[in-house]
């Protein structure tokens, strides 16, 4: 069977040691091994953004990263945004602005938005468009997504 290696990492603030199959994507590892199913698979080839997570604070398509690369890194998934039962302000803004429909792209969308706001607390429309251009939403909630991100910006 496939070779496995031990990896140490933090996930949503918790330190973990797990075995990862060599060749397994980070996306599969997150879903199948960590059982964090909020991260979604949409294309498996880095085109749609449904699987975006924060790796050391930077947004990455987890289908384009190998699980073994997680060793020594810090991972945040959609499940890690709400703290002590309180939604992150971007999550609340997505609710207030009805910034999703089917919700399948939403975890990736929110993670990308979080990364943008961390980097640039008061983004312009152009900043938002650029930062989220790798997140596809077929339901077409883009206008509401822009509004939600603007509403969560530092005034």
């Amino acid at each position: 069977m496939s070779e496995k290696v031990n990896i140490n990492f933090s996930v949503n603030g918790d330190q973990e040691t797990r075995e990862a199959v060599v060749g397994q994507t980070l996306l599969k590892f997150i879903r199948d091994e960590l059982h964090l199913t909020g991260t979604k698979e949409g294309c498996e080839i880095g085109e749609c953004g449904a699987c975006i997570v924060l790796l050391n604070g930077k947004p990455v398509n987890s289908c384009m990263v190998l699980a073994v690369e997680l060793d020594g890194q810090e991972l945040v998934t959609i499940e890690g945004l709400a703290k002590n039962g309180e939604l992150d302000r971007i999550q609340q803004a997505f609710i207030d602005h009805a910034a999703f429909q089917c919700g399948y792209c939403t975890p990736g969308m929110i993670i990308s938005a979080r990364a943008l706001l961390d980097r640039k607390p008061s983004p312009t429309d152009e900043d938002i468009n650029e930062a989220l251009s790798g997140n596809l939403c077929r339901c077409g909630a883009y206008q509401e997504i822009r509004e939600a991100i603007k509403a969560s910006s530092k005034k």
Partner: peptide, 19 residues
């Protein structure tokens, strides 16, 4: 009124069929 599925969908707890 806000969507019934809102909190589940923004927190990643919404279950889609593969989940």
């Amino acid at each position: 009124v806000p969507r019934k599925d809102a909190i589940e969908k923004v927190t990643g707890s919404a279950q889609f069929i593969e989940d």
